[in-house]
Amino acid sequence: MTTAYISRPASAPLVGIGWMVAAGLCFVGMTVLIKSVGAALPAAQTAVLRFALGLPFLLPMLPALARVRLTPSHWKLLSLRAVLHSAGVGLWFFAIARIPLGEVTAINYLNPIWVTVGAALLMGERLPPRRLAAVAAAFIGALVVLRPGLREIDPGHVAMMGTAMLIASGYLVVKRLSEDLPAEVIVAMMSLMVPLGLLPFALPVWQTPGATELILLFAAAGLGTAGHYTMTRAFAAAPLTVTQPVTFLQLVWAVAVGALLFGEPVDPFTLLGGAIIMGAVIFITWREARARRAAIAAAPDALLSRSASGPAARGSSRG
């Protein structure tokens, strides 16, 4: 009996870590540029301009977009994703202008936690006790960052919590869309639809942007695109259990840059809370990877068991 093996690219942990470090630098750089625009423009307008100025980076995706045939169901899901992402992005831009970069980054780590909770509530996925404990730990980490009752909660903190929930909800929609559509189509449609979703909120408060704001937002769009590309390369090069811990560096860099460029105080509670949240995310990622490996290992055994029992079962039925 011969066994066929599927050839897969070998895991390259150091390469994956390198790509993830590059992704983190891109995302932190993008956040710094957006914060540099700050209150010069309304948050909704800043978000519209960031996506509009990023449209040239979609050109390589246009062939895939031209080939696809979208059904009414696809349009409904794409529209829902656009609404969720538009609201999340608008709140994110609002939060960046109001609260320190470290707190923005730390609270943003809740995205995978909300995805886990949403998948359990809306898609019926299991939430075993250990994963539930990790979710609880993540929310404790968020409380450490926010410290309600011990300091004043800024509207930016509330907006950032809303961002994490809305973006996570959008990821759940993407999970469904990815069963039918290529990633390029999903990304391109989001980039085209989100500015349209934000435009009604931006037009009433529209201000004429200066050359500096346009240059900064164009550079932010480029870094955002590069960040998603390098993150995808990291996922392809190494397992999530290897690359996920590297994302904690984004919090360290955000706190350092916030202190050096914007005079934001270094808050140890932000670092501690972010570490707790990231620890929970890493634990969930590790558990999912372990469960996936167990399922893959069990599949050949189940196949062999069925193959061995099949002839005997058929023979007994003929007897």
Rank of each mutant, 00 (worst) to 15 (best):
G141E: 03
L143I: 03
V144P: 00
R147G: 01
L150A: 14
R151T: 09
E152H: 04
I153Y: 08
H157S: 10
H157Y: 08
V158G: 06
A159Q: 12
M160G: 11
M161T: 14
G162R: 12
G162M: 09
G162D: 06
A164L: 05
M165H: 11
L166P: 01
L166W: 03
I167F: 04
I167L: 03
I167C: 01
A168G: 06
A168Y: 01
L172I: 12
L172E: 00
V173S: 08
V174S: 05
V174T: 15
L177Q: 12
L177M: 07
S178C: 13
P182T: 15
A183S: 15
V185Q: 03
I186N: 04
A188P: 00
M189P: 00
M189E: 05
M190F: 00
L192K: 01
L192R: 04
V194W: 13
P195K: 07
L196G: 10
L198Q: 04
L198I: 11
L199N: 12
L199K: 15
P200T: 12
F201N: 13
F201Y: 14
L203Y: 08
Q207T: 14
T208V: 15
T208N: 08
P209W: 13
G210N: 04
E213S: 13
E213C: 07
E213Q: 12
L214R: 13
A220Q: 07
A220T: 09
A221K: 08
G224V: 05
A226G: 14
R233C: 02
A234D: 07
A236S: 13
A237C: 08
A238S: 03
P239F: 11
P239L: 05
P239N: 09
T241V: 14
T241P: 05
V242A: 01
V242F: 03
V246S: 04
L249D: 11
V252Q: 03
